[in-house]
Design a protein around this nucleic acid. Structure first.
Lengths: 176, 176
DNA sequence: TGGTACATGTAACATGTTACATGATTAG
DNA sequence: CTAATCATGTAACATGTTACATGTACCA
């Protein structure tokens, strides 16, 4: 059909393998399952859904309560998803405004820098705690079912711990 | 003048504090100094330069060899940059196709997964080596001059080490 | 019966990517 | 003199963000 799937659209097809879902459901599922390393917005989701319905990758079902419109995966969609999976994933993009800001911050008041660093550190601490709770609540069966899902969670833990260490070193070194 | 600076445009103004530079120079400087956590493309740079010249934040100088057109910071540009610096930096965005792909990879052949993981690990090892070399070549005076620049480099080291650890654990656990 | 969470969507705009087009300078 | 690198830019498109507009169902 049209051009190849982008990663965002592909992820939606991925979720639709489990069951038909509405745009709303997909936004929430994506936020929960991949939100930490692949963000998307409602607008994007509705746009991609419309485009994929047009392309025949998904089909809208009966409108339910509250105009709820569940989309179901078609065979063409399943195929498009498989093609996407068959491509090698690209490298990560990190856009870290704090680092950019710090690269230019040499003449900023220490006080302000420390406030910002403490705020960001607190956010990372919260996220780390969330991952730790998630890890603690994992049942052994889950590992059998989806070892890679666990690896992804482990990435989150590893990342947040490293970042938190960095904040701690930085603030301690500068008596923050 | 028009809407507030975006981070990409702001970084260009930041670099122009040192000296007038052409679009080409800016692309290379940005790649070198902030490329690891703030990527930008040539097209974007030329577009932002045109917009900022229009807004009066920079001024094009005499055209040099090869149509080289150096842009110099104006007072208005200095002010706009200062305003940007005065805002609190937002949180990071990470888009990690590998993790997205892994979240859906449970029925992919192990062999392929391992190949991909090894490739990505190698890239991270290379980047880490680059940071370590950069760190080793730092003179003590540099710390006095720009402690935050060093903190940014330290972030890179911390990040790459953590990621590399993750790859190693993953590949060892699965006998890669 | 009123507030909260659910639900969908459009419009306008900002940002980022890729491909195309052109030519100058320099090193060998 | 010719290939590589430097240098600038446009066009077209893809992706991501923000604001606006509309209404429904559920729970207290």
């Amino acid at each position: 059909m049209p051009r190849p799937l982008n990663a965002t659209a592909a992820s939606l097809l991925g979720f639709l393998h489990d069951q038909p879902m509405s745009g709303w459901d997909l936004v929430r599922t994506a936020e929960e399952r991949i939100g930490d390393f692949w963000s998307l917005t409602r607008s994007q989701v509705y746009r991609e859904l419309a485009a994929m319905a047009e392309a025949g990758f998904i089909e809208a079902g009966e409108t339910g309560p509250r105009d709820r419109r569940p989309y179901a995966l078609t065979d063409a969609g399943r195929e498009a998803f498989a093609e996407w999976l068959a491509q090698d994933p690209g490298r990560e993009t990190i856009r870290y405004p704090l680092l950019l800001w710090m690269s230019f911050a040499s003449q900023l008041p220490e006080e302000r820098l420390h406030r910002i660093l403490r705020e960001h550190r607190a956010e990372h601490a919260t996220r780390l705690a969330g991952y730790e709770a998630a890890q603690a609540s994992i049942l052994p069966e889950a590992f059998e079912a989806d070892p890679y899902g666990l690896a992804v969670l482990d990435f989150g833990l590893t990342y947040e711990r490293a970042v938190l260490d960095w904040f701690n070193r930085l603030l301690e070194a500068r008596a923050g």
